[in-house]
Amino acid sequence: MISITSLNYAYSKKKKILTDISCTLRPGHIYGLLGLNGEGKTTLIKLIAAMLLPNSGQICYATLQSSKRSADYFNEVFFLPDSSKLPDLPIEKFGSLYGLFYSRYNHEEYTDYLKAFNIPIENGLSALSLGQQRKVHIAFALACNCSVLLMDEPTNGLDIPSKTIFRKLISKSMNEQKLYVISSHQIRDIDQLLDALLILHQRKLIVNSSLQELAQSYKISTELQPQEEVIYTEHVFEGQKHLVKSTSNEENPVDIEFLFNAFTHANQPIAL
């Protein structure tokens, strides 16, 4: 479990990025981290990965503080950046050499994931394109079996079939002990995987909810009923699309893109 308490981060006094972020990320969930450009998604992920240090507040995995940058913390939290430029090593050797440092690294899984991505394992990493290096990095990230996997734009550079394979591997590797956070602008690539949403807007974390909660609380409607309270309206090709408060406890279909627009563009902040 990752717990973030009163987190503040700024690159300079004038350039504040995150203000007073507090939340708890629980294992067994795949969180989608969404936000407009420059809202601090990568910054938040890097803070959790301990690559950046909070100005104030703290981030903990169990009792391990990110700011201590201990080997134990890095053993639990893996960061997959938005681009992968790996060292000049044979593909299999990369796994065995770097996997040595992760206590739950599984080399068999690494080679299986590579096979799933159709990566010729006998090649060297320098012979691979950036997209293929990305696949190797994803395979390695999954095979490390860290409790927390932070992915920044993981589908960057992946071709269409590989995006499908990526989704399959994420589902296959997920279990109740793991927690994945995926930050992406390509929401269609990952929306089937997510079961919780984190939305950053104007330096604040405005949404931290499971998709189930959101599906029970809100409904997307094209034809308004008289008693329905409209929260947000978007003009679409077919006419108008409204986000309304759900009156029943039924689970309504969720459109993450529309929800994101609603939360970030609504005139009044939406109360969860």
């Binding site: 990965a49 301990a50 690559m51 940058r69 201990s70 080997a71 134990d72 890095f74 053993n75 939290v77 893996f78 960061f79 950046p81 430029k85 790996l86 770097y98 440092f101 992760y102 206590s103 990095h137």
Partner: peptide
């Protein structure tokens, strides 16, 4: 500056 080196499970002194 490489993320996979930076986040290796090793102490800074190591």
């Amino acid at each position: 500056y490489k993320s996979y080196e930076f986040t290796l499970p090793l102490q800074a002194w190591q």
